[in-house]
């Protein structure tokens, strides 16, 4: 059981908890909170893909010899992807919360069961 596997288990557990919350909760703010938990889980899994035990961060300072850099650092590509994913995530969460605020101003309710306009 190495660290990559431990973090994968944590991330997958967070994804499952988040999906369970999104599917069972009635409150719309809680559904968005569930999505935020799923995001954290996915990002953890992605960073764990690039982690290699016993290596250092991808910053080429005095601790890393330049000629042997590819044997001393962890994978920088997943970190760059997750960096942008976090910023996008918060913007999308804010946009969804805005929709919730507008819906609340319309019907004065946060329960998803009160919005049946598209239900057949």
């Amino acid at each position: 059981m190495n660290i990559t596997n431990i973090v994968h288990i944590i991330g997958f557990a967070l994804i499952l908890i988040g999906f369970w919350g999104m599917l069972t909760q009635k409150n719309m703010i809680k559904i968005i909170l569930g999505l935020a938990i799923v995001e954290v889980g996915v990002q953890l899994v992605m960073v764990a893909f690039g982690f290699i035990e016993g290596r250092t961060a991808p910053i080429l300072d005095s601790a890393v010899e330049l000629s042997k850099a590819s044997e001393l650092i962890v994978d920088p590509v997943p970190q760059a992807l997750v960096l942008t994913a976090i910023v996008i995530g918060v913007a999308v969460n804010a946009l969804m919360l805005t929709f919730v605020i507008r819906l609340y101003q319309k019907k004065r309710s946060l329960s998803i069961n009160d919005y049946k306009d598209l239900k057949w």
Partner: peptide, 22 residues
């Protein structure tokens, strides 16, 4: 989960970036 093998080395594009980035 069962199909993941942990990495022990940089491969492909990451290796190129690590070697030539500086």
């Amino acid at each position: 989960m069962t199909n993941i093998t942990p990495k022990y080395d940089l491969t492909g594009v990451s290796k190129t970036y690590a070697e030539q980035g500086a």
